[in-house]
């Protein structure tokens, strides 16, 4: 899988490259600012772009804007944006632009190499990945206005959060140390409680959940 990395911090750029190459990704180019990133995306047509949100020259949200631009220009290129902190607004902007093949993660998640790399694969194959922290914020926000969420059990809310992060049933089962079968059972209960249409497709499921949370 061909990857372009955008990260202005040299050590982190190297670390990220190292992690991805060890995990079998083909890092075809790295960029230290948004302009370079856009150029590489144009020339190399990678399967995946992994970029920091904060980039020179203004060190605000250049990376995010570049990612949104790449999304528009090259719909086949998947995007994962990394940030030192997460913000619901950025996630909403990303998902509104094109709700598949996108990921939004805290930078700190890189160090959990196995989970990080599987997240990248999921995004590259058209999935959606959201950082647990952003999902927690969305759940907090949604609970204020949605009584149905309050009626869920703690376990059901944990399953819902993992679903919103873009996890598969197998991954949720592993995370919560329960069987895949009971994940399916929880999911079906959550659907009926929230009034969501049942869906076997992981990707469709995450979008339905996110739409519900971000009403």
């Amino acid at each position: 899988m061909r990857v372009v990395i955008g990260e202005d911090e040299a050590l982190l750029r190297q670390g990220l490259t190292h992690v991805l190459e060890n995990a079998g990704f083909d890092v075809v180019a790295t960029a230290a600012d948004a302009t370079e990133l856009l150029r590489h995306a144009d020339e190399r047509r990678p399967d995946l772009v992994v970029t920091d949100i904060r980039m020179p020259p203004t060190h605000t949200d250049e990376g995010l804007l570049a990612a949104l631009h790449i999304h528009r220009e090259h719909p086949q290129t998947a995007i994962v944006v990394l940030s030192q902190y997460v913000q619901r607004q950025y996630a909403v902007e990303l998902l509104t632009e094109r709700p598949s093949g996108v990921g939004y993660l805290l930078k700190q998640r890189i160090s959990d190499v196995a989970t990080f790399c599987s997240d990248l694969h999921r995004v590259a194959t058209g999935g959606t990945v959201l950082d647990p922290e952003i999902v927690a914020i969305m759940l907090t926000r949604a609970r204020r206005t949605d009584d149905a969420l309050d009626r869920l059990t703690d376990r059901q809310r944990a399953v819902l959060a993992l679903m919103a992060q873009g996890r598969s049933n197998a991954s949720i089962a592993r995370q919560l140390s329960i069987s895949e079968k009971s994940v399916v059972q929880h999911a079906s209960n959550i659907y009926s409680e929230l009034g969501l249409p049942p869906s076997s497709d992981d990707h469709r499921r995450v979008l339905a959940v996110l739409r519900h949370l971000d009403r």
């Binding site: 904060r54 605000t60 619901r88 607004q89 969305m138 907090t140 609970r143 204020r144 206005t145």
Partner: peptide, 24 residues
């Protein structure tokens, strides 16, 4: 908050309220 620097007052206040566990 980085949001205040990067986006401004409205987004930063929204972000603040987003993280509140109380109905607001």
């Amino acid at each position: 908050p980085a949001t205040l620097i990067e986006r401004g007052l409205a987004t930063a206040v929204e972000d603040l309220v987003d993280r509140l566990p109380l109905p607001t």
